[in-house]
Design a protein around this nucleic acid. Sequence first.
DNA 1: GTTGGCACTCGCATTGCTGGAGTGCCAGCA
DNA 2: TGCTGGCACTCCAGCAATGCGAGTGCCAAC
Lengths: 356, 356
Amino acid sequence: MVQRQGDEPLNERAQHLLRMLVHRYIQDGQPVGSRALTRDSGLGLSAASIRNVMADLEEAGYIQSPHTSAGRIPTDRGYRFFVDSLMRVRPESGLDSDSLRLRLDAGQDAGTLVDSASNLLSGLTHLAGVVTLPKRDFSAIRHLEFLPLTERRILAIVVLNDREVQNRVIETDRAYSPAELQQVSNYLAAEFAGKSVSDVRRGLLEAMQADQQHMNTLMTSAIAVARELFSEPPAEDDDFVMAGETNLMTFAELSSVEKLKELFEAFGQKRDILHLLDRCLSADGVQIFIGEESGYRAFDGVSLVTSTYQSDDEVLGVLGVIGPTRMEYDRVIPIVDVTARLLGHALKPGQAPPHP
Amino acid sequence: MVQRQGDEPLNERAQHLLRMLVHRYIQDGQPVGSRALTRDSGLGLSAASIRNVMADLEEAGYIQSPHTSAGRIPTDRGYRFFVDSLMRVRPESGLDSDSLRLRLDAGQDAGTLVDSASNLLSGLTHLAGVVTLPKRDFSAIRHLEFLPLTERRILAIVVLNDREVQNRVIETDRAYSPAELQQVSNYLAAEFAGKSVSDVRRGLLEAMQADQQHMNTLMTSAIAVARELFSEPPAEDDDFVMAGETNLMTFAELSSVEKLKELFEAFGQKRDILHLLDRCLSADGVQIFIGEESGYRAFDGVSLVTSTYQSDDEVLGVLGVIGPTRMEYDRVIPIVDVTARLLGHALKPGQAPPHP
DNA sequence: GTTGGCACTCGCATTGCTGGAGTGCCAGCA
DNA sequence: TGCTGGCACTCCAGCAATGCGAGTGCCAAC
């Protein structure tokens, strides 16, 4: 990156003005001029002085002017500084938290909850909401069942956490007789019941490294089958749900059809978005990507506010909100934060189911 | 509908010119003037004569001019007449059919097939593809299983057709002990194995009307549970999958952001679309809704070409393509038709699974 | 019935103009 | 040294005027 003169820290006044400018721009989407700022700032400064400061801010890369005689708008860097150092998150208006809880009812199945959360996010922020399906690594295995389809293909059904059912077809190395399969099934069901998927995976790894000569045929078969079943997470774990994409069509910044197309294509591809969301999985708490920071061209002019959601300290997934860089960060961030907490809570196993 | 002078049948020449006009407009999206038509028509007529005919066509409601001194464009009614009487469907270029078959591989599960079909449609037509999930009414029940969750909540797992697994939580009138549930489970599994969902439903209806005093407790319980399970189709049966929505953003007719928003919101709501697709279920073969014919405002300027798909004479669902009214009907229709056939074929139970 | 001609109508792009908002810079002042 | 008022300059947005081109409708003549 090019060294800029402006890399020296901003003084108090410049920071204050930058905050005002960003705030104002977020409100009405018009470039902010020196006159408007003089009024807003509350400092008893003249427009000329403000102009001087604005020139500094521009040189430092925090703001820019779309053309000579327009006001200034924040750059990505300006938003970043605003979000990191200038902004104070608005405390959610207590009421929210309660009414939200009602809409994320514990005891529903994961798919429904994820949908609700996504709708909730988009509804509250008037932006697009996005929620990844929860990882199932820490779910307890409740029930296990194998059905022979053809000689070498078995339909495996796994029930997790009282509620979720997953199934996949596995291909085996050799043919299993129904009786044999039944044995394997019983053995594995007894062995795995109550354990979490990641425990099982770890256990399998150990078993495979152990001396196989001490095992009987049943165990060897069982391990082979189980390995096939648990070797990699099911495809659905790698997916997300969006809601309210159309909200993005209202923003002037994104109203060029080409820009929109690019963005919606990115949503459809899923790959880039997933990659981006995966990056958020590692750091917990709220994370923000502003415009080009994401590294994807389709995300120019677009920001992503995310948070991991977790139950019992295990990170299950990521949720967040996609909108124009010009979004009300101070309002959106707490919404994302609260929603993440509520979703995590609602997903906690053993929650009371809703009364019929 | 208002009676128009033009309701008298169009003469040969008028029909020919209408065909040319629609064809031309579909090709380049520009209003077609009399000069252009004189060249295209092949008739040795002058522009003035053409203009006379065009005036007739306009009066009859088949074409209209966006403003005084532009050419003419087809109205919905014009497209309708074109599609019904003037157009000749292009025979698919044999090659297609083979390469398509490869992309709709029999033996995959319904979800994957539906996704593929949807992508196929949008890829081939450069429009948006839409496919409803297949109804499962005619699927054979392969396996049935009940797991107690809480006293009155039971997780039911139904395996259909070797491949599809459906599960739902049912609420019972009274508490069942695990042993009792096991009995019910065994009884129903034996009773239902191999029957289709609709057979079972019919059977249940009869059983309920029969004199219940002749039944033992087991049967009564079993019927109560089964009724809960099969009373109405699972929610997923009532859903569809779309692909290539972004293709619609390229068309000039739809390039106003507001129109697009309206349309995409309709896609998101699903309700209207589902309703529209349901209407297609009854009539089999290819069906077409042009513009306002659909009755939904969001569909102004948009056409829908659909076909039912079926295996073994049972209609399973609907698929189709959504695009601007100005679409190449003669090319799109056979694509929809073939895709429907291939999807129906691929969904046929007992198809050889793909070799690993 | 067909044709050429003619007047007419729009839409669209270009041009020139004006007002307003905003900037940068400078000289003067505390 | 920092702040301020003033001034010249720039650029956009909106508006009217204009000319051009494409296309129409109608009519009289063939």
